[in-house]
Amino acid sequence: MLRKIFSVFGRDIRTSMRDSMAIFIIVMPVVMAVAITLFTPGLNDTTVNLAMLRSDDPSHITYMEQFAKVEVFDNIGDIEKRVNKRDAVAAIVPLESGYEIILQGNEPDMVENYTVMLNSLYELGTTKEETTTTMMSFGHTVPPLKTMLVNMLISMTVMLAGMLIAVSIVGEKADNTINAVNVTPLSQIGFVIGKSMMGGLVAMGSIIVSLLITGYYDINWFMIVLVGLTSLILAFVVGFLQGLASDDVIEAAGNVKMILLPVAGSIIGYELLADKWQWTMYWSPFYWAYKANLLVLSKQADWPTVLLCTGMVLILSLAVYFLALPKIRKGLS
């Protein structure tokens, strides 16, 4: 039995390597991990962007550079042109006495308030050297935004594994090989496991490499692997259902779009819903997987919580599987 399962797995590897899908599923998360590592410092910068005149007092420009990203321009025309561009940039230009703050008019309130406050602090002659403020640090080096992006990457990788199975099954149907499998000694369960192995291994490998690239070395790896494996069970169930429910790639494409909705909805629900409304997302296994991964990545996870989350993913995935079992059996026949 095991040999037959591995033969399905081996055949899947060979066929997947012939086209670019498996390679993409391996490479894409790694590329995205590199991109997250490169972009996060820019995304995490919450201060304002300022435009200033080159002819301004150099000490004014130097002062502002301590607190904001500053671009320097030759004349007021260039400044107004810059402010009028579609991103949020405020300008501070010298007048005969004092300064004028120029805004486009559609910036968030924070941009105006921040700019007004910075220029006021400059006019008051406030410097860092005379501060009485003490700064303590908890030593967290990873911003929550990066953790959220990496967690989203994990969710996407898991769903890609499911899509790999879906497209692979659509291909099997188009080639009429599913019927051929039914007349071999390999059982339907064996076929399912064999087809799932490649997606699972590829996804787990990609997740681990992505976490290493993004710098999450010191997380609890047992927890992340446990959450990953239970999430993969969910991805496999979804992948099989998508594959078997779709007669052609157009339908598979439509189904992929539909399944993206609960994935994205769960992430948005977890991040944006108030605590008292979080229960409205409990039906979604994607929600539990996302929550567990987030706790592990932010090093706030404990075993009871992780086991609860993975347990919920498992129970909900198995519920979907058993509800869909007649359909899976019918599809495989």
């Binding site: 006021s120 406030t126 640090s137």
Partner: peptide, 28 residues
């Protein structure tokens, strides 16, 4: 003021926190 920061805040933001309370609230 004694701030407890997480550690991932940018230097620009921390610089602002340092000087934010140098002047009285009314003067600012």
């Amino acid at each position: 003021y004694k701030y407890f920061t997480q550690g991932f805040e940018t230097t620009r933001l921390k610089n602002l926190l340092y000087i934010l309370h140098n002047e009285s609230g009314a003067a600012l």
